[in-house]
Design a protein around this nucleic acid. Structure first.
Lengths: 122, 122
DNA sequence: TTTATCGTAATAATTGAAGTTACATGAAAC
DNA sequence: GTTTCATGTAACTTCAATTATTACGATAAA
């Protein structure tokens, strides 16, 4: 599938698609072929790739929208707040990443297949 | 404390402070007095205000930086992804809000007091 | 040799948050 | 009562981060 076509599916720009897919290529999850009839291709067994793998491959982007403003603030109030938030966020992140680790692309594909069949029936 | 002074403490603009504190005022957590010697004052027992209360008062801002792009997409792939992410995010959010609910301003104040005493000793 | 594709750098556009200005309202001080 | 000091809020500007776009080189198939 070309970046152009992927971009249309995702509602995103082809160059942005290339940038992002580049991380998955670097992680060995997909390959990219140039030239005529080139494009992106899955390079891994779908059942061996979890959402956690994708998250890691994409550089572990920040999960939380809110969080510490400074890592080691001089302000004692800020230190107190950071201390309690850090442990709360750490727990939530651990749980979320555990979930991510348990969901594979194969499962997503199976779920898609089910939805697709259901739609054709209806 | 005036918005001006709070702004200096927080490294934020006084008007932004007023905007934000306004939510806490609407929730009854603080009061604001105008005029000479006015400003913001705590209006609740510190032990009765949890971080959860603050979060709710501030309009339950989004906790996660990543999430569904569309709530009810036509795309079946997006539907599959949303389905698994929604439950994962819901679990993590529940845990985080539970933590928030267990932390009170009184506890934060006590922790601050401890840090303050420690610093004076050192 | 032409066409199609990725790779990537440089730049522009967009967006949402924060900052700023301006002024009305209200309350205390003198 | 007038001055001063606050909040309340609308309108506008600035800023930072993401996304989009343009441009062009590299590569491979037709």
């Amino acid at each position: 599938m070309t970046s152009e076509a992927l971009g249309r599916c995702l509602g995103a720009n082809p160059v942005v698609v290339r940038r992002t897919m580049g991380f998955l290529r670097d992680a060995g999850i997909v390959t990219a072929d140039r030239g005529h009839s080139g494009g992106w291709r899955i390079a891994a067994d779908l059942s061996s790739v979890s959402l956690r793998h994708l998250h890691d491959a994409l550089g572990e982007p920040a999960i939380f929208a809110i969080g510490n403003r400074n890592e080691a603030p001089a302000c004692l109030v800020e230190q107190s707040v950071n201390a309690v938030l850090e442990s709360a966020f750490a727990e939530a992140e651990e749980l979320l990443l555990k979930c991510f680790g348990e969901i594979t692309l194969a499962e997503l594909a199976a779920d898609f297949k089910r939805r697709h069949a259901d739609r054709r029936k209806a």
